[in-house]
Write a protein that binds this DNA or RNA. Structure first.
Lengths: 134, 134
DNA sequence: GATAAATGCAACAAGTAAAGTTACAGATGA
DNA sequence: TCATCTGTAACTTTACTTGTTGCATTTATC
């Protein structure tokens, strides 16, 4: 599978579920559709479960289901649940000691964080129910 | 250096130049500030040069300089020059053959492309001159 | 012209994060 | 009791980025 595919995998799976919300799907079935591995699916969907977007049931006849109506799940919910941070820098970078560089670094960082927030705001405008096959 | 750092490196360097536009800097000096390698700097700044944001002069006393006033360079210019595509999927992915999956895939892709465009629009609102150390 | 100092670029090495895989414990319904 | 799920840890593989070396080319200066 390609890199940067967690968001894509999540959206595909959620959109698929949105088309038939009461149906329970196993990670093996989802992996089959997505062309990947059940463990990878559980890994990604696990974050969505932790965020309350999905429910997972163990055991016989278990599987995954949407926890809310598709209209009530925004792309921002998914993005945040996956802990994506596409624009802003990761926290653990080394900050320069030189004071001019430090000021610059701080400024660049804060601008990128603003942009990240704008991105999330944009994602919040679209819900799962708007992903329909043509 | 960290990953996803091309944009960060470019913005830092450009902001640094914006503070003193007539000064020529060599890739070795820039690399020193940025804590990286001159070749990496030339690799990244080369894209900005190709996009007309910077000029590079070879030979003795050569180096890098802003091609325009800082106010006239937006973050979107930089983003596009670097050929970043943080949200949308890369072009060369394999599209599913199943028709339902195909429709879904097309829809998800087009939504992510819309989001990518929104991101660029947001970046276009900020110029280099707005990156000033506090 | 010779020399020193810069970019341009190709080829390769090293590092890193994500995806893929295997294995197994725990839960649950038949 | 057994088959079928999820949950998770540990490890391997893969893909991409950054770092490095080497050298050709360009240009100012002596």
């Amino acid at each position: 599978m390609k890199r940067k595919s967690r968001l894509s995998l999540a959206l595909h799976t959620l959109a698929h579920m949105a088309a038939d919300p009461q149906k329970v799907q196993t990670s093996a079935q989802i992996a089959g559709h997505a062309g990947t591995n059940p463990v990878v699916v559980r890994r990604v969907l696990g974050k969505l479960r932790d965020a309350g977007l999905l429910t997972a049931e163990k055991g016989h006849a278990g599987g995954w289901r949407l926890a809310r109506k598709p209209e009530l799940v925004s792309l921002a919910d998914v993005y945040v649940a996956l802990e994506e941070s596409l624009v802003a820098a990761s926290k653990k970078e080394d900050v320069p000691t030189c004071s001019l560089e430090h000021g610059l670094h701080t400024k660049v960082t804060s601008i990128l964080e603003d942009v990240e927030q704008s991105l999330i705001a944009r994602l919040a405008e679209t819900s799962l129910s708007e992903i329909n096959p043509v």
